[in-house]
Simulated scan of single mutants.
Amino acid sequence: MAGFALINLDKREVVVASETGFGYKMVECIGAMPLAPLRFFTIPVDGQPAPPPPPFRPSSPLPHRSVKTTRVPVGHWANDRILIVNEYSGSAEDVFPVDVLSAFPDGDSSTDALYYAFDNLKHVNLPGYEHQGDQDALFPVDKVWVVHNLTKKWYARSDKVVAPEDSRGLDLTDDAESLGLGDLIWAGDRFDVQTLQSVQNSDEEWKDWSKQAK
């Protein structure tokens, strides 16, 4: 049984850990952050369109309660509100905002938030984008990438959050115990991940929160 789910409140979508092929709990799924879920928020450099996602082919049979899921492109969740729930989060009416509950008038809001999400939200899968290393034109390694907190108007730079030797573009590190940009995606706020240049060229005021984030 999946004990966690990653939810997009605005698109009414849910990623169920057991349906990703990474494991049965979300903590297993996001263990390699930022190499998997962070792709939901990343926007390709210079406004390039995101490529179509690859088909999902699970390496092992999925549990009986799983439903068909489809991959979404990189950047599909940029600027959306995100939430993670588990079996202990409480009822749907205690967890989800009114606009989400009202979208499903037949849903039982007194049920656990986790199972409410299973039953009502659209099941999607991780983007599945494979970084092309030094040859990657969408997410080049010679750029500094930042997490934008679009709600609180701060950003954190990849080259300030982790050690320089671990900072190579978006894929900061393969060490699951090291800090990565994905650890800065906070529940309830709106985020995207773009290059530092995109912040510097913006007309809006952004606060460099890299030191505090680290």
Rank of each mutant, 00 (worst) to 15 (best):
I7M: 08
N8E: 05
D10I: 00
E13R: 08
A17R: 00
G21V: 06
G21L: 05
G21P: 06
F22C: 14
Y24T: 01
V27C: 06
C29F: 05
C29S: 05
I30Q: 10
A32F: 09
P37T: 13
P37M: 12
F40M: 07
V45Q: 12
D46R: 11
Q48N: 10
Q48G: 06
P51A: 08
P52M: 04
S59E: 11
S60L: 05
H64F: 00
R65W: 14
R65G: 06
S66N: 02
V74I: 15
W77Y: 14
W77M: 12
N79A: 14
D80I: 00
I82A: 04
E87P: 01
Y88G: 09
G90V: 08
G90Q: 03
D94L: 05
V98H: 07
V98Y: 08
D99K: 03
S109Y: 00
S109W: 00
T111S: 08
D112L: 09
A113L: 08
L114P: 05
F118Y: 11
D119H: 04
L121F: 07
L121A: 00
K122T: 13
H123G: 01
H123W: 03
V124A: 02
G128L: 07
Q132N: 12
D136C: 07
P140E: 11
V141I: 15
D142H: 15
V144W: 01
V147I: 14
H148T: 09
T151C: 02
K152S: 06
Y155K: 02
S158H: 10
S158K: 08
D159Q: 13
V161E: 05
P164D: 13
G169K: 06
L172A: 10
L172F: 08
D175V: 10
A176Y: 11
A176E: 14
S178W: 12
G180A: 10
G180L: 12
L181Y: 04
D183K: 01
W186F: 12
D189F: 14
R190I: 07
V193P: 11
Q194R: 15
Q197K: 13
V199S: 06
N201S: 15
S202A: 14
S202P: 05
D203K: 14
E204L: 13
E204I: 06
E205T: 11
A213L: 06
